[in-house]
């Protein structure tokens, strides 16, 4: 079983990202479970959401403490929260930032820096990072196929909004695949 922990702020779509990643993983033929860290949702407050991936039925219900992967939607969280807590060697950390800094990630964790907010602004016209981060996650981990992610996004958003979110997602996917993130 592999586990993903998403760190974000209320309103950034962390829970939606977790749900859509799970939907895409399930479409790829594996078992997936997605759930939020059940807080009182306030805009701007730190939030977490989790996804588990497994070839077998997932019975575990606790939160994720030793993630294989993390996504950090908002790098300003890093000074207040140890987003890398519990990460294992071989893990992948995807960080959305326009100003990459030095991160105290555990040894053996691969860090991927991407300016997903900029991608969101350019492709969707809004400072939305989460769909680009989903694309980066697909490329960096191989847990989900891009085509499955595209289907999941089309299932959630309609018309032009789906198109622009898919474009943001694809751009990040290709950046990570091409090694430019």
């Amino acid at each position: 079983m592999r586990e993903l922990r998403i760190h974000g702020r209320g309103g950034q779509g962390s829970v939606t990202a977790a749900e859509l990643i799970a939907v895409a993983a399930f479409q790829g033929g594996i078992y997936a479970q997605a759930f939020p860290a059940f807080g009182v949702e306030r805009r701007g407050a730190p939030v977490q959401a989790f996804v588990r991936f497994s070839d077998e039925t997932i019975r575990l219900r606790s939160q994720v403490y030793e993630p294989d992967y993390i996504i950090v939607q908002d790098s300003t969280l890093i000074k207040d929260i140890n987003v890398f807590a519990g990460m294992k060697p071989g893990g992948v950390a995807i960080i959305n930032t326009e100003k990459p800094g030095k991160y105290k990630a555990p040894e053996g964790v691969r860090i991927i820096i991407i300016d997903a907010t900029k991608i969101g602004l350019e492709e969707i016209g809004l400072p939305i990072a989460n769909t680009a981060l989903m694309g980066a996650f697909a490329a960096a981990t191989g847990e989900i196929e891009f085509s499955a992610l595209e289907d999941a996004l089309r299932g959630r958003f309609e018309g032009k909004l789906a198109d622009t979110n898919i474009r943001a997602s694809q751009r990040a996917y290709e950046m990570v695949k091409g090694g430019s993130a």
């Binding site: 749900e19 799970a22 078992y31 997936a32 997605a34 759930f35 059940f38 219900r61």
Partner: peptide, 12 residues
């Protein structure tokens, strides 16, 4: 069924 733990969880 447990609130949030099941009600808000996506699973097959």
């Amino acid at each position: 069924f447990d609130g949030f733990i099941l009600s808000h969880t996506y699973e097959p």
